[in-house]
Design a protein around this nucleic acid. Structure first.
Lengths: 214, 214
DNA sequence: GTCTATAACTCGATAGAC
DNA sequence: GTCTATCGAGTTATAGAC
C-alpha cells in the first residue's frame, strides 16, 4: 500500500458508492450500479466489503476523514471572521442546492433519516460526522466568544447551527426552492445578531444573502 | 354507517402503509409486508392503487387531512397561550421520540429526504404537509403578534420553527438521544425570548444598521 | 485481487377466475 | 372487489477459475 495517489479499485468503489448514495439514497442504489460507475466487478467489491453495509461504513468514514481538509479548512482559510465562517459554511450548502437544482442536500442528513434507525453501525458513523461538523462550528464560536454574551452555551449554539442547516436543507428540497433555506439562515442570522448585540463592539453585519425579507 | 368504525380494505391498506413507511421508509417496505399487515391480497391493493407510489400519495393525503384534527387541534385546545402552543407542538414530537426510543422521527421529514427528489408527486404532497404545519405555527404567531417586535416576519419565523423541529428530530435520531432535540428547542426558546422582550421594532438583518439603539 | 457466472431471493406488478 | 398464481426483472451475495 503506497501513499501515492493512483486510484485503487477500493477507492473507486467507495467514491462511486458515495456519489450514488448521495444522489439516490442507500437502498435505491444497487450494487450493479456501483460496479458500473466504479468500473469494477463484483468479485472486487466483495473482496473489500463483505456486505453493502460495510461499503456504506466506508463511505461514512470517508466523509469523516475529509470533513476538515475538504469542507472546513477551505472556508476557514478564505474567511477570517469566526461568525462569518459559520455563515460561509452555510452558504456552501446553499451553493450545493443551487448546483443540484435543490435536489441534493446534505449527504449525511439523507443517510441519517434513511438508515440511521436501522443500521446501528451506520448511525454511529453518521453521529461522528455530525459531531465533527458541529465541532468545527464550535471552534468558530469559541474564537468569537468575546463577542457573545458571557456564559453563552457554545455547545448548544453549535448544535443549533447544525440543526438549522439540516432542517433548512430538508425544506429547500421539499419546496424545490432556496426560499426556505434563505429564510432559515436569515432567522439564524437574526438570532446571532441579537446574541452579539448583547455584549459588544460587533458592528456592521455583512450583507448576507438576499433571502425573503420584508 | 354504524358508530363502530368498520375499516374498509382501502383504509387498512393506507394505514398499514403509513405505519410501515414511517417505521422503515418507503423503499425498505415491501408490498408483501403491507399486504400482511393490512390483511389484504395484492389483487385488492392494485385495485385501489395502480402503483406503490399511488399508495404513498394516499398516505401523504391522509397526513394532510389529519393534520388539524389529530395534531394541531388537540394541542390548541389544551394550551391557550399562543407561544406556548408552539412549544407544546414541539413537545409532542419529543414525546414521539421518547416512545420510539429516538428511532422514529417526523414521518414527513423522513419521506422528504428519501423520495422527495425522486418522486415529484410525492414531493408535492410533502410540501403541502409542511405548508399546513407551518401555517398552524403562523396562526399562533399572529395571535401573539402584539408581543412580537413590530413588523416581525411571521412567515419567516414559522418556517424557522419547522426548520428547527425537523433538524432537531434528525439529530435526536442520529445521536440516539433527546439531548440535541432539547438543546435545539432551548435555543429556539432563547430566540423567542429575545424577540419577545424586544419592545422595539423588528431588527431583522439589515444591510446597514446605523445607530440602532435599544 | 480480479474475473465470469449464477445462486437464492425479493421486488413491484399482472392475469384471470369468481 | 377479492382471490390465487405467477411473471420478469432486479436484488445481494457467492463460487471458483485465474
Amino acid at each position: 500500500m503506497t501513499a501515492a495517489a493512483e486510484s485503487t479499485t477500493r477507492d473507486r468503489l467507495v467514491e462511486a458508492a458515495r456519489e450514488l448514495f448521495w444522489d439516490q439514497g442507500y437502498r435505491a442504489t444497487g450494487i450493479a450500479q456501483i460496479l458500473k460507475k466504479a468500473e469494477a466487478r463484483s468479485g472486487s467489491l466483495y473482496h473489500f466489503f463483505p456486505t453493502k453495509e460495510d461499503l456504506l461504513l466506508a463511505v461514512l468514514e470517508k466523509y469523516r476523514v475529509q470533513l476538515r481538509p475538504w469542507l472546513l479548512d477551505p472556508i476557514f482559510q478564505r474567511v477570517t471572521d469566526p461568525i462569518e465562517r459559520i455563515f460561509a459554511l452555510l452558504d456552501g450548502y446553499r451553493q450545493g442546492l443551487i448546483l443540484s437544482d435543490c435536489k441534493q442536500g446534505c449527504p449525511i442528513g439523507n443517510l441519517a433519516l434513511e438508515v440511521g434507525s436501522q443500521l446501528p453501525a451506520a448511525r454511529e458513523g453518521i453521529e461522528e460526522n455530525f459531531r465533527g461538523w458541529s465541532a468545527g462550528v464550535r471552534e468558530c464560536l469559541e474564537e468569537a466568544s468575546g463577542r457573545l454574551p458571557e456564559g453563552a452555551d457554545l455547545e448548544r449554539i453549535s448544535l443549533f447551527v447544525l440543526t438549522t442547516m439540516e432542517g433548512a436543507v430538508m425544506l429547500a428540497r421539499s419546496y424545490q426552492s432556496l426560499e426556505p433555506y434563505d429564510s432559515a439562515v436569515s432567522s439564524l442570522r437574526d438570532y446571532f445578531e441579537r446574541l452579539l448585540e448583547d455584549g459588544s463592539t460587533w458592528s456592521a453585519p455583512k450583507p448576507a444573502q438576499k433571502g425573503t425579507r420584508r
